Amino acid sequence: MTMPIILVVDDEPRNFDVVEALLGYQTYELQYASSGKEALENLAMFPIALILLDVMMPTMDGIEVCTQIKANKDWAMIPIIMVTALTSKYDLARCLEAGADDFISKPVSALELKARVHSLLRIKTQYDQISELAQLQRNTIDLLRQNLEALQGNLAASFPHELNTPLNGIIGGLSLLLEEHTTMDAEERQVFLQMTYESALRLHKTTQKFLTYTKLELYLQNPERVPLHGLDGPKPSAMASIMKDIADSEKRAKDLQLVLGEAQGVISYADFTTLITELLENAFKFSSAGSPIQVVSQAIADQFVMTVTNQGRSITPEEVQKVGAFQQFNRQLYEQQGLGLGLKIVMSIITKYDGALNISTLPEGGTCIEFRLPLLQEASESHP
């Protein structure tokens, strides 16, 4: 845990030693400034948590220093304890008018100094916590504002359809079953139950995509303080298993071609699953059954490189530029409807791990999506 930094401002160097002895060097980190000018320079260099400021100093006295600090919005919330030999109410009032949070009289008592420092640092910690929460709220609002134009366009038009279509399927299927179940035979009931179930799955998938995208964007705005280099990505055998399951669900198992090396990227198992699911589902969606979908992974220098190639319709450079705007590619050519969030989710995951994404069109038709991640140097046994 980082010790709070206390700035001691006094033109008498021996007073610094006194403060150090009174507070104890193992509890706080102390910085020393012998003048008001030096104190302001220290504030620009160190994350000062509290200031012990002597009132009587030449050139720029403590009251002037306090006034300048409190006038700066970046420093205004740093608590200042004025250390003074002055005792008149007028002088003490001047200290408070300058913005001082507290004052202590010379000679300084160890017990009193520790109590006042501890109290003000506790208040400062509470203020910092509230400020961090407020910043998180501001970042969330900014994120929503940044995406508002896109949401008002393609998303605003698509979202009702994406929700209403499966919802209508669920309501319609259940209504028929409730009204006609006594006259239906077992096979008819099975058909309507299957249709209702598929509509529910589609609705669930749509909402999960939005939740995934939102969580990723919030992470990128406020990264978790967890070192990503400690993660262990899935091994090639696990990668293959994930991809085969996706191909099976799309009824395209025979079309999937895997050429996986032994390399692993620095990425969590869950994020890799989301990443490759989005890429493969797009590859299957925009290619015909019977055409190959090839996935190749290898280590190049210090990077894990994976490509997903299909021989279906190509994504144009213009469409690639619109990935971040929730663009659904050439909707008129496909019966499948979608919100175009898949590649945006892919980009957010890759950004999270400081990777890179490249989308290119093949000369003979089709699209190759390549992503690069930091290479995992030592395989972990956490996942098969």
Score class of each variant (00 low, 15 high):
Thr196Trp: 01
Tyr197Pro: 04
Glu198Gln: 10
Ser199Val: 06
Ala200Gly: 12
Ala200Ile: 08
Ala200His: 08
Ala200Pro: 08
Leu201Asp: 14
Leu201Met: 14
Leu201Tyr: 07
Arg202Thr: 13
His204Asp: 14
His204Gly: 06
Lys205Glu: 15
Thr206Arg: 05
Thr206Tyr: 03
Gln208Ala: 13
Gln208Pro: 05
Gln208Trp: 04
Lys209Pro: 06
Leu211Gln: 12
Thr214Val: 04
Lys215Phe: 10
Lys215Val: 13
Leu216Gly: 03
Leu216His: 03
Glu217Ser: 11
Glu217Asn: 14
Leu218Met: 14
Tyr219Phe: 15
Tyr219Pro: 05
Tyr219Thr: 09
Asn222Met: 05
Asn222Ser: 04
Pro223Val: 02
Glu224Gly: 06
Glu224Leu: 14
Arg225Glu: 07
Arg225Gly: 01
Val226Ile: 15
Val226Gln: 12
Pro227Ala: 07
Pro227Gly: 06
Pro227Ile: 10
Pro227Glu: 10
His229Asp: 15
Gly230Tyr: 02
Leu231Tyr: 09
Leu231Gln: 14
Asp232Met: 09
Asp232Gln: 11
Asp232Pro: 01
Gly233Thr: 00
Pro234Gln: 02
Lys235Asp: 12
Lys235Cys: 05
Pro236Ile: 04
Pro236Cys: 09
Ser237Arg: 06
Ser237Asn: 07
Ala238Lys: 07
Ala238Gln: 08
Ala238Glu: 13
Ile242Met: 08
Met243Val: 08
Lys244Ser: 04
Lys244Asp: 07
Asp245Met: 08
Ile246Gly: 02
Ala247His: 12
Ala247Thr: 11
Ala247Trp: 09
Asp248Asn: 12
Ser249Thr: 14
Glu250Ile: 06
Arg252Asp: 12
Ala253Met: 08
Asp255Gln: 10
Gln257Phe: 06
Leu258Glu: 09
Val259Trp: 03
Leu260Thr: 01
Leu260Pro: 02
Leu260Tyr: 01
Gly261Lys: 01
Glu262Thr: 03
Glu262Phe: 00
Ala263Gln: 14
Gln264Thr: 09
Gly265Thr: 01
Gly265Tyr: 00
Val266Thr: 13
Ile267Cys: 03
Ile267Asn: 01
Ser268His: 05
Ser268Asn: 08
Tyr269Cys: 07
Tyr269Met: 08
Ala270Asn: 08
Asp271Tyr: 05
Asp271Phe: 03
Phe272Leu: 04
Phe272Lys: 00
Thr273Asp: 15
Thr273Ala: 12
Thr273Met: 11
